[in-house]
Amino acid sequence: MKLLLVVVLLVSMHANSQQVYSKKEPFAHTYSIVARDTVTGEMGVAVQSHWFSVGSLVAWGKAGVGVVATQSFINPSFGPRGLSLLENGLTPKLAVETLLKLDEGRDVRQLAILDVHGNVSAYTGKNCIEAAGHIVGNNFSVQANLMEKNTVWPAMEKAYKNATGSLAERMLIAMEAAQSEGGDIRGKQSVAILVVKAKSTGNSWEDKVVDLRVEDSENPLKEMRRLLTIHKAYEFMNKGDLAVEHNNFKLAKEHYKNAQKLNPDNLEMKYWYAVTLANNGEMKEAKSIFKKVFKQNKNWKELIPRLVKSKLLLVSKKQLKRILKL
């Protein structure tokens, strides 16, 4: 049955191949990395380019299946079709070969595909604008074209292999190394990071671990680092909210505190931390934080009675009055 599905898919690809290569195609001359975390099994793509919204066409991924980076003169169909080929049993090597065989624009394409097992294959067309090339490593591949110099992707490889932290963090480090080495000869404009889970939950909205984009910026990698830090902070917030749902206010306090460390100027994070302190009976510290938050934005005070009504703020009537007088 899988073989039949693959055959049908290939026929469909061939029928549409004439529509893919044209002068109207987007050209994301860029550098990217596809990688798999050998501990968590998460798979990701990170990409940066001097082109608007590079992530919308270059980076593709599906939990439990794999990830794809299609760039240079982009063939956007390589994303969904590459994933479909993996899902139907092809290796990344065979998927790359199949996609390119049916594509008249193969000489100007750059493509990397990685599967859920960490197998990876990459391709750089002979007419990709120099400096262009790729390196396939263990559970990752780095690729680049239209670079200032041919040391960009080797710098990415070295940085990634020496990096620590989450998969998204390590991929970002590789991207920063590329930029430090010269990056895209035209400059920089947009960046994207996509990370998917090793196994699908069956709910697509739960399968993406990270899905961040900077569509247009003078310094997209700096902005991406800021966003990734905020993303980590909100992960702690989400964990805190989950702990509150289970009435574990002590654990919630810890998560909210960690979130504030990463994003100290965020009023909402301070507010929910104060709510948790109040629920833990630590009213003195809670009121001190509430007072500072209310001073900056009175709407947070308006929310207090609503939280009491929803049983998210567990205080007595006397304590409620004191909070509202702050």
Rank of each mutant, 00 (worst) to 15 (best):
Lys2Glu: 15
Leu3Asp: 11
Leu5Arg: 05
His29Gly: 15
Tyr31Leu: 10
Tyr31Cys: 08
Ile33Asp: 09
Asp37Arg: 02
Thr38Ile: 12
Ala46Ile: 15
Ser49Gln: 06
Trp51Val: 09
Val54Thr: 14
Gly55Ala: 06
Val58Leu: 03
Trp60Pro: 02
Thr70Gln: 09
Pro76Val: 09
Pro80Asn: 12
Leu83Val: 03
Leu90Tyr: 04
Thr91Asp: 00
Lys93Ser: 12
Lys93Trp: 01
Glu97Ile: 09
Leu102Gly: 01
Gly105Val: 00
Asp107Leu: 05
Gln110Ile: 01
Leu111Thr: 01
Ile113Thr: 00
Ile113Gln: 00
Tyr123Pro: 06
Ala132Val: 09
Gly133Ile: 02
His134Thr: 01
Ile135Val: 15
Val136Cys: 02
Val136Met: 00
Lys149Asn: 15
Thr164Tyr: 10
Arg170Glu: 05
Ala178Cys: 07
Ala178His: 03
Ser190Gly: 08
Val191Trp: 04
Val196Pro: 01
Ser204Met: 06
Lys208Trp: 04
Asn219Lys: 12
Met224Arg: 04
His246Val: 11
Asn247Asp: 13
Lys250Gln: 14
Lys253Gly: 03
Lys253His: 12
Lys253Ser: 10
Glu254Lys: 11
Pro264Tyr: 08
Leu267His: 09
Glu268Gly: 08
Met269Tyr: 09
Lys270Ala: 11
Leu277Ile: 04
Asn279Glu: 03
Phe290Gly: 07
Val308Ile: 10
Ser316Met: 07
Lys317Glu: 15
Gln319Asp: 14
Ile323Pro: 01
